[in-house]
Amino acid sequence: MSEEKAGLLDGAVAPALNTRLFGHAEAEEFLARSYKSGKGHHAVLIEGPEGIGKATLAFRFANHILRHPDPLSAPEAIEDPDPEHPISRQIASGASHNLLHLSRPVDEKTGRVKQAITVDEVRKAGHFFSQTSGTGNWRIVIIDPADDLNRNAANAILKILEEPPKRAMFLVLSHAPGKLLPTIRSRCLPLRLHELSPTAMDQALGQLGLSMPTEKREAVLSLAKGSVARALKLVNYGGADILEAFEQMLASSGPSQRKMMFKIADALSGKDSDVAFGFFIEHLGDHLAETARQFAHAGNLAAAEHYARLTSTIGEQLTVAGAYNLDRKQTILDVLAAVTR
């Protein structure tokens, strides 16, 4: 099943179903201690790169709270969720009356995940709190990720954060917290998660059973940069081949370069290629930013400015192409041509 239709990468385990978390023991310990103290913050901003376990941590903590509603008698550590426990089953099925997971909704017409979390989704939080206000239970909202909130939705969340209901907990996830409204960040306790270590990556990928040729494993782990999601995109979505073609394109010229450009464009404009396309665009942005930094450090300010402007120009070009549903293959060819000039 494709990510654009289900919001989940091929080979991944939905965070609500995931019973294991690797590489974030200190963050778990902090959350457990904070909750047990009875003085924990009502909103935690769990920030860090995509695909390192932020959502899994949020669901584990939510499970911990709902299983131990009295903070003072809660265990000092967060245990792996028991899939057979009623609360775990409710969370896994999305049937918990005390947990609301806000994410980009699926467009009923296209079956694809929308580009943003809308204000209509945030209104569900208000309804959620009003329905459960008399039960005395904890009510937990996971915003996954808050980066996807559009302006109206962000303002609506802010109003709830400013006057949170009693025994309410917000777990706000963010890949890029600098893009969030400063007022949202200021009302959350920040908890920074880092890229997974090589050991944690091995454990996480082993848990998923990700299969890759031995000779490619080291290269994939290096390119994954401590992100399980990135590793899945490299292996299950052709990301490694796309990046290899991109490097060959940059190193070549003439007909050979043109051949690589078409190879990349074909791979990124085929059926169910949205994940690969997003992966490549992210990589391209990183490449241009790094190139600009290298030129700046070398004292070539003109070249640095060129690549900085190119980043902005390509971003605008992609936005327009998406807004008007322009031919993706031609858009990619135009972008690659701009990079190679």
Rank of each mutant, 00 (worst) to 15 (best):
S93K: 14
V275G: 02
N137S: 14
P83C: 05
I332D: 12
T319R: 15
S73W: 02
R139T: 04
M261C: 15
E163W: 09
M261S: 12
S312I: 05
D266T: 02
H283K: 05
A219P: 00
I314F: 11
H64Y: 15
R187T: 07
P86H: 09
G38C: 06
E26P: 06
L31D: 02
L250E: 15
F61N: 02
K263A: 15
L100A: 01
L45V: 03
K54W: 08
N150Q: 04
A116N: 09
R67P: 00
L196N: 06
G238E: 04
D10Y: 09
E50I: 05
S37D: 12
M212T: 05
A153W: 11
N150C: 02
G322F: 07
K39T: 10
Q317W: 04
L234D: 07
G51N: 12
R33Q: 11
L223H: 10
T118N: 08
H101Q: 09
V13Y: 05
L189D: 00
L72T: 07
V339Q: 10
A12K: 01
A276V: 04
A251Y: 01
R89T: 06
I52R: 02
I143F: 09
T311P: 09
L208Q: 11
R104Y: 04
T313A: 15
P105A: 01
H101S: 13
E26W: 03
D10V: 13
G136Q: 08
R139P: 07
I65S: 08
P164A: 00
A303N: 09
Q115D: 15
A338M: 13
R20I: 04
Y237C: 09
A156F: 11
M1G: 08
A16N: 13
P86Q: 07
A16K: 15
R167G: 08
I184Y: 12
L180S: 08
P255D: 13
I87P: 01
P49L: 04
D286G: 05
R192C: 04
D241W: 04
H306P: 12
E316K: 10
T199M: 12
L45Y: 06
E282G: 14
Y307G: 08
I142V: 14
L189Q: 15
H64A: 00
V172R: 06
I91W: 03
V320E: 10
W138I: 11
T19N: 14
I314V: 14
A77H: 06
T291W: 05
R104H: 01
A14N: 11
F22Q: 11
G322T: 00
A32C: 06
A12P: 03
A289D: 12
P81N: 11
L196S: 09
A55V: 08
R187E: 14
L232F: 05
W138L: 06
R123H: 12
A176S: 15
